[in-house]
Amino acid sequence: MSLLRRRFSPPVVVAPGSLLGEAVGVHVRLGGREVLRGVDVGVRGGEVLALVGPNGAGKSTLLAALAADLAPAQGVVRIHGRPATEWSAAELALRRAVLPQAAVLSFPFAVEDVVRMGRAPHSSSADEDDLAVAQAMAATDVSDFATRPFSALSGGERARVALARVLAQRAPLLLLDEPTAALDLRHQELVLRVCRERAEEGDAVVVVLHDLGLAAAYADRVAVLRKGGVVADGAPGDVFDEQLLSEVYEHPVEVIPHPRHSGLLVTPKRNL
């Protein structure tokens, strides 16, 4: 299926380590409630930043603000060093790609066509688009059902196809909201490996996670949110403190050195 699209100029090449997404003093109000309270956070090319915290802490709201999908009441969001409001929608689409929590389509598009939607902002050749789509589908393990209708897929399969669309977009800033929520263990690991690979290629990745073990294993930095604020921001080894996490989650948490490498195991304390 051929998808109609406009053509736009490609973005400038970003320098390694550039600050690609930044929130400065961001306040967001939704339904009369202040959901984010003066948040400062940034992500550079070459790193994976995990946003963690309990339900209602403001993780998805912060991701939406960083994506310029949600305007702050106060503060500023910058994308590639410029205020997000100064980019057009077409320019933003070349610079950041967003994976929402739920992937919903009203029409029975085939999986490959859904992934190809990620190429819409680009002025690349058909061969370049085909390669980007094929690589994104292979990376997310969805190539085997390329011709199936998106609507006929399981929740986990839909989540991986939605991620493939984001990867095919090839924007330098990836903003992923709970990409592992509907996935089995194997595909959770696959998705986080893809995040690491994109960071190693110079992209900046912001990912909302509930699994602290995944965050400890794959993130370069972790921002811990609680009640609309960032209470800690740093490397997992510095941020994942038993007392801090127990207070944030209001449940006892254990942080244990991994027995076979320098990583951490993060798990709730259980009285069984």
Rank of each mutant, 00 (worst) to 15 (best):
A84R: 09
L30G: 00
L163W: 12
L264Y: 10
S262Q: 13
A146S: 13
G213D: 15
V52Y: 10
V161T: 05
G58I: 08
L264C: 07
D69V: 07
V28A: 05
G234F: 03
L272K: 14
L36S: 10
E200K: 12
D211H: 04
R198A: 06
G213Q: 12
A134T: 12
V115W: 10
A68V: 03
G25W: 00
A89E: 04
V14T: 10
A132Q: 03
A217E: 15
D241T: 07
R221P: 02
V76E: 13
A159L: 00
R33Y: 01
P179G: 13
E247Y: 07
P83L: 00
A199R: 04
P257L: 09
D211K: 06
L176Y: 12
V12P: 14
E254S: 14
S151P: 11
A132P: 00
Q101M: 04
V39T: 13
G81S: 02
G53K: 04
V205F: 02
S60Y: 05
S18A: 15
V253C: 02
F8P: 01
H122C: 07
R7K: 14
L167D: 07
G75S: 08
R193P: 04
E91I: 09
A65C: 04
L66S: 07
S262V: 08
R96H: 09
D141R: 14
A204S: 03
S262H: 13
E112Q: 15
D241F: 10
G234E: 10
L36Q: 11
V224K: 04
P149F: 05
A132L: 02
L176V: 11
G42D: 03
L174C: 05
A71L: 01
A97C: 07
P268M: 11
A232M: 08
E254Y: 11
A138N: 01
Q74H: 15
V26R: 11
V224E: 08
P268F: 11
A217H: 12
A164F: 01
I79W: 01
